[in-house]
C-alpha cells in the first residue's frame, strides 16, 4: 500500500516524478488516439493505467519509450521528459532511451536463444560487461531479481522458448532488468499467464518497486489494485482520473471512473 499520507494526488507536479508528460496527444494518421494527457510517473511507486479497450492506455504507455516511432503513421505531440530530459528531442538516442525505459509485453517474447543469451543480449549490445565473468554476474543478478534464478540456474543453456509461459515472462523481465533500466513499462504482462504465474509476477513487481519506476497497463482491475500505489483511468483517449490506488478503488471522484471499476461501464 501507499506510504503517502496525502488524500489526493494531482496528475502533475509531483516532486518525486521520474517521468513527466505534458499535453501529450497521439495521432494515428488522422485519428487522434490520445488527447492532451498530462501526468507524472513516480520514481518510487508502481503506476497502473486502467481503462476499457481502445481507451489509449497502451498507446500512451508506448509514448514513454518512443515505441510508437515504429508505427509510420503515428505522430506524438506535447512533451515527455525523463528526469527533465526531453525524450523526443532530436539529440535523444532512441536505443539508449529504450535501455533506460525498458518494456515487457503482453505475450512473453524470448529470443530463440539460450536462457543465458536472452539475458546477456542487452548488456552485450550496450557494452555493459568487459568479460565473461562480469557478464555471468549480470545474468545471475538479473535472473535473481526476476525471481527465476533458482528455477533455471542448472539449465542456462536451454532455449528460452522451452520455459513455461510464466517463466518466459520472468525471463523477459530479467532481460529488461539486465541493462539496468530506470523505468520499466509493462503492457498487460500477465494476461497470457495462469493465476500462479500471475501471482509470481505480481510479487516480483512488488519487489522491484523502489529500484525502478514501474508503469503497468492492465485490464485486470484487481491486479491494478493489488500491485500499484497510483492508478490512472483512461477513457476515449483522455486521462479521466489519477490518484492513490486506494482512493480510486474505494472512492473515485469521477462518475466515469466509478462506473468503469464497478462494472457499470456501458
Amino acid at each position: 500500500m501507499s506510504t503517502d499520507t496525502s488524500d489526493a494526488v494531482s496528475a502533475t507536479g509531483s516532486p518525486n516524478a521520474k517521468m513527466t508528460a505534458r499535453d501529450v496527444s497521439v495521432f494515428y494518421g488522422d485519428k487522434q488516439a490520445i488527447n492532451s494527457v498530462s501526468i507524472d510517473v513516480d520514481r518510487d511507486n508502481v503506476t497502473a493505467f486502467i481503462g476499457p479497450s481502445g481507451c489509449g492506455k497502451s498507446t500512451f504507455l508506448r509514448t514513454l519509450n518512443r515505441m510508437n516511432d515504429t508505427i509510420p503513421s503515428a505522430r506524438v505531440e506535447g512533451e515527455i521528459k525523463l528526469d527533465g530530459e526531453d525524450i523526443y528531442a532530436s539529440a535523444m538516442d532512441v536505443v539508449q532511451l529504450r535501455a533506460r525505459v525498458g518494456m515487457v509485453f503482453q505475450k512473453p517474447n524470448p529470443f530463440p536463444k539460450s536462457i543465458y543469451d536472452n539475458v546477456a543480449y542487452g548488456p552485450k549490445i550496450h557494452g555493459l560487461a568487459d568479460n565473461k565473468g562480469e557478464m555471468d554476474t549480470i545474468v545471475e543478478r538479473s535472473l535473481k531479481r526476476a525471481g527465476l534464478w533458482e528455477e533455471v540456474k542448472d539449465r542456462l543453456t536451454d532455449s528460452g522458448t522451452a520455459l513455461s509461459g510464466g517463466q518466459q515472462q520472468r525471463l523477459c523481465i530479467a532481460r529488461a532488468i539486465a541493462v539496468d533500466p530506470e523505468v520499466i513499462l509493462m503492457d498487460e504482462p500477465c494476461s497470457a499467464l495462469d493465476p500462479i504465474a500471475t501471482a509470481k509476477i505480481e510479487e516480483l513487481i512488488h519487489e522491484l518497486r523502489g529500484r525502478y519506476a514501474i508503469v503497468i497497463v492492465t485490464h485486470n482491475m484487481q491486479q491494478a489494485a493489488r500491485v500499484s500505489q497510483r492508478t490512472a483511468f483512461f477513457h476515449l483517449g483522455t486521462l479521466v482520473e489519477y490518484g492513490l490506488t486506494t482512493d480510486i478503488f474505494t472512492n473515485p471522484r469521477e462518475t466515469r471512473t466509478k462506473d468503469y471499476i464497478t462494472g457499470r461501464y456501458g
Binding site: 489494485a225 474505494t250 472512492n251
Partner: peptide, 10 residues
C-alpha cells in the same frame, strides 16, 4: 464472487 469496487464495495 463479484469483487465489488468503489460504491459497491462501501
Amino acid at each position: 464472487l463479484r469483487a465489488p469496487m468503489a460504491d459497491d464495495l462501501r
